[in-house]
């Protein structure tokens, strides 16, 4: 017969041993979240402040990379822009090669990325970059809540039996 108490005890010991790693995971997840948030916020601000709407045509669609390449005129030449579709996945089904659309592009020398002007709100409010680090943060934090003993290291005598 399965002894649940013994299994729970083993699981508890396993989580205790895992807790130093979980503390590190929380720290890493917070750093990754902050970095991704700052990068996305920086992109949104750059497109808001320096981006200009231009009329473009869909040049090629690469569904496996989630990418729509658009072509638009600039300074008498044709410039190609990369429109990533993870901000608006419906773009892959709605858009066709040759179709015209308005994109927001940055001045030359600031990268080839463009944003779909009609769906700029979706781009600005995108939180998808946080999904993976948030999942890691929640799991690791739960382990830390169950076993915080290592957090007392350096501030209290370390004796897990007493804590």
């Amino acid at each position: 017969m399965l002894n649940w108490r013994a299994w729970l005890k083993r699981l508890d010991v396993f989580l205790f041993l895992l807790s130093p790693l979980a503390i590190l995971c929380v720290v890493v997840a917070v750093i990754v979240l902050a970095d991704r948030y700052a990068t996305h916020r920086g992109d949104v601000l750059a497109f808001e402040r320096e981006g200009a709407p231009v009329s473009a045509a869909v040049f090629r669609i690469e569904p496996e990379d989630g990418l729509v390449i658009v072509a638009y005129p600039e300074g008498g030449e044709t410039r190609y822009g990369l429109m990533y579709t993870h901000y608006y996945p419906q773009a892959l089904t709605v858009l066709n090669e040759g179709q015209r659309l308005t994109v927001r592009a940055l001045p030359a020398g600031q990268g080839d990325r463009v944003v779909w002007e009609e769906r700029f709100g979706q781009f600005a409010g995108y939180w998808g970059y946080a999904t993976a680090p948030l999942g890691m943060l929640v799991c690791a934090w739960a382990v830390v809540i169950l076993h915080p003993e290592f957090l007392y290291l350096g501030y209290a005598d370390f004796n897990p039996g007493k804590l």
Binding site: V26, V144, L146, P148, L151
Partner: peptide, 13 residues
């Protein structure tokens, strides 16, 4: 702050 936030959250138990 991050270390202490983890400590305080552990007080849930």
């Amino acid at each position: 702050a991050l270390r202490f936030a983890m400590l305080v959250s552990s007080l849930l138990l």
